[in-house]
Amino acid sequence: MGNTSSVSSPRVTPQDKAILQMKLQRDKLIKTQTRLSVIMNKEKQIAIEALQQNNKQRALLALKKKKYQESSINRINDQLISLENLINSIEFKLIEKDFLYGLEQGNKILTQLNKEVSIEKVDKLMDTTQEGIRYQQEVDDMLSQRLNRSEEMEVDEELKELERQELGLPEVKKEPKELSELSELPEVPKTDIEEEPVEELPEQSIQKKEREREEELLAS
């Protein structure tokens, strides 16, 4: 037998005690009610028996008693209902209290967290971040500048060499690579064809002259 309220066993609060008291009252009412209904039934039986024995007065008395018990039971019923109501509302209020407490706790944590995430702090943080970014950019700039200076000459030379290569073998390199130039190609022969007869003629004439010369030589 121990009323041991140790660490983890449920704690009994004054409210619990009050509720217990009310519930005990309720139990008492229920018991009284049951007792009364037992008595009531007995009175009814007595009335029946009395009637069977033709004892009307006794029967009447029993019925009156029964009526009285009945009204008592009804009264108790009303009391029971109001008591139950009270118990229920108290229990519900307790839940509400817990609920409010929970809300309060949540709110507290929220405000605390908000405090930790203050706007100034965020501003400062963003500033430092921006500074960092700026710094990084500066570093980048500096690095790229240095690269230019140190390797400017080399880059220049490389460019020149590339240019030389490109210009030295311009057609060989360009022709297979670029379709646009391929499409331009057909124009070239046109001019050639026009020029060709002019060029051909001397050649042909030379060849003709040579042939004529040979023929002349053969003939002579």
Binding site: M1, G2, S5, S9, D16, K17
Partner: peptide, 12 residues
């Protein structure tokens, strides 16, 4: 009392 032992109940 068993429940009290188990720390699941408090007797009033």
């Amino acid at each position: 009392n068993k429940l009290v032992e188990k720390k699941r109940a408090t007797i009033m």
